[in-house]
Each structure stands twice: as structure tokens, then as C-alpha cells.
Amino acid sequence: MSDLVQREAAAIREQWLGQALSTLPADRPAAEAAISELYRLIGLPPPRFRWVPSPVAGLTTVPPGARVRESVERMADWPVPGRFAALVRELRKELDARIRPAQEPIDRLIHQTVLFPLSRSVSTTLVPPLQAAHDGPFRQDWYGLQHWVVRYDALRQVAGVAFTGPQLEQLGLWATLAASCGWWWPRESVCVVSERPVAMHTEVWGDDGEVRLHCADGPAVRYADGWDLHYWHGTRVPPWVITDPDVRRIADEANVEVRRCAIEHLGWASYIERAGLRLVASAPDPGNPGSELHLYDMHRGTRVLLAVNGSVERDGRRRRYGLTVPGFLDDPIDAAGWTYGLSAAQYSLLLRRT
């Protein structure tokens, strides 16, 4: 595969990622026109539109004209999303028929360099707020329908696949919708559409440019109605983890992941000092030459192993991190081996851990 093709694919990925993470106001006329035409394609008249400032607003209000069977609690049984899903399945079948064998290698490249990293980025940036708004399990039957558009857009631009007529027109409707608004909930007579967030903070974390939610000094996602969410390196946390990660709150926190994030934000060295943790033992790290392992006594019958990452971070530094280990471990090397499922002797034979 030529370097030019790979660069074009990467550019398309960045273009769509930029649209997905946009914090610009929705293009309401474009979104409503596209949705109205899609309703027509499934045999329904254009719906009335109810715009909401955030996903949580979309799920906590019942728009005028909504029917009893279209309540949020029965969302999985709504009839319109199923009809849209069938429409998309038929369109994709027709679009796939236009792909020639000679174009399949580029299709595989697009999956690898465009779709996979893009879908991972979407799952770690746009889906978490939706999950938080639902406050429980939910089905993504129609939420994810727009992501497939990227594949065909890339095939058209990079591989020269010719999509024409009604196929191209419908593909354009889905592409317009994906680029013009936030999440949307189609009912039979009314469609609820969410605005995009007004702020979104992310960090690059994958080898292929994937991103995830992260903000060290405030909400990672914020909507115009004030609904916001805090994330620490992709993990959703209570606001105090970002605004006031003090030792008392950390000690009282039952969730291990939240506690870890709070300690990382505070800094392990600062946390150990403020919490007055007792040093049990230290030793050179045989899995990471030049670094040391420190084993500290914690609360609740556990201990924490403070180590240095064997891999260099994007900023050129090696991150210090702590791992919770059982309280019966007294030797830092035993503790390090335990985290890998190895004995101390086996861990000592590692050339370099990562």
C-alpha cells in the first residue's frame, strides 16, 4: 500500500474525529432536513423536533406528542429505530456490492487505520456521557448507526469506489447527520435531538491516535445546561477527585479505581507523605534496571507497591505508579512478581517489564 493512500486514510480519520469531538453548536437546519428525509425513506412524515441541551435532558423529559409506548423505560421497543436499522442494513448491502475485488486491500487498510482507531475514540469520548445519561445498561442499536458512514466515505475518497444515485444520496444524509448534531432519539411523531457539548477535553493514548476523556483541572465534558462529567485518563470519577483529591476522601472511597485516580492526581509521593504510610521495604527493581521498588503499608490490610513504569510516556518521562497488593507480602520483589502472577525468582529474570 502506497504512503499516499495511507496518508489519505489518516487524514480522513482525523477529519471525522474532529467532527465527532466538535463543540460547535449543532447545525439545526441541516440535521432536521436530513432526519426528515430519513423519516420519509421509512414511510413516515417528518417529525416534530425537540432540541435539548444535553443527553441527560433528552432522557429526563418527555416531549409533547410522545406516546406511552415511547417512554424511555421502553426505549428498546421503540419501532422507529428498528426501521432505521433495516434501512441502513439494506443500504450497506447495496454499497458493499459496489466494492470490487481490486479495492478490497484498501478496504482492509481503511478498517485498520480509520475505522478501528475512530471507533475506539468514539467509545471512549462520546459513548461514556451517553452511558452516564442513561444511568444503567442501554442498547446502542441506532446510536452507532452513523459510524459506518466513515468507511464508505473513505472508500469513495481513497479507493475511488463509485457510489451513485439513491445510494449516494442516502449516504449523504447519514453523513450530514453525523456531522451536524449530537445524539438523537427518533420517536414516531417527534424526534429529540441533543446539542453537542460546549467543552470536551481529551488526551491521545493509543498508538494510532486514539483519544479518551481526560481533564486535570475541571470537567472533561460539559454541556450548555450545566451537566458535566469528570474523567481522569479515561476513567469517570466524582468531581472531588479532580477538584480536591485529599487524603481523607481517598481513605473513605470504596471504589478502587476512583481511589487510584485520586492518588495519581495528588501524586503518589505527596499521597504517601500526607497519609503517613509506613515504608515496609525497598529494593532495586530487577525488571526495570535503575529504578527502585517501594512497599508501603496501607489501610484495610493491604499494601501498595510504588514502582516506575518501564516504558517512556509521550512526554519523555517514566511515570511512577502504585499497585495494591495483599498485606501478607513483605518483600517488594515478591510484591512485584505477584502483580504479574510470578514468583520473586521468576520476576527477577525479566529483562524489562512494561
Rank of each mutant, 00 (worst) to 15 (best):
R120I: 12
C261Y: 09
R352A: 09
M298Y: 01
V161M: 05
Y143A: 14
E70P: 09
L229G: 08
A269N: 07
D207S: 15
Y271M: 11
R67H: 11
N309V: 10
N309W: 15
L279F: 00
S123K: 07
I272P: 03
E264L: 14
V304L: 06
S71E: 12
A66F: 13
R260N: 10
E264G: 14
E169L: 00
A175R: 15
L109T: 11
G182D: 11
P245G: 03
R139T: 06
Q140I: 03
L126A: 15
W184Y: 11
R67M: 12
R83C: 11
E169W: 00
E253P: 01
K93V: 10
G337L: 00
L41S: 10
R156Y: 03
Q103M: 07
L118P: 03
G206T: 13
R278V: 14
A57N: 12
E94Y: 05
A132S: 14
F116Y: 05
D77F: 08
G82Q: 07
P238W: 02
L118R: 04
A76W: 07
R108L: 09
E32C: 11
L306M: 08
H147N: 14
H147T: 13
A281G: 07
W240Q: 13
Y223M: 05
P25S: 12
L350C: 03
T61I: 07
G327M: 03
L21V: 06
E37S: 08
A175Y: 02
V192M: 03
L305K: 05
S54M: 14
A162G: 01
G218K: 03
R100T: 15
D315M: 11
L305T: 04
W240D: 13
G82H: 13
A31L: 08
L350M: 12
A34V: 01
A269C: 02
T60Y: 08
Q103S: 15
H147L: 15
P117Q: 11
Y271K: 06
D331S: 05
T354Y: 02
D246H: 09
R83L: 15
D153H: 12
A345V: 05
L277F: 01
I99F: 04
W205R: 14
A97P: 06
R260F: 07
V204M: 12
H111L: 14
P101M: 04
R69A: 14
S22R: 13
E257Y: 01
V114T: 09
A76E: 14
P117I: 11
L155G: 05
V237C: 07
Q146S: 06
V158S: 07
G218C: 05
A281H: 04
G65I: 05
A336K: 03
R92K: 13
G182R: 05
E32A: 12
P137Y: 00
T339L: 00
G18R: 14
H299P: 01
G65A: 07
F163W: 06
P332V: 03
G290M: 10
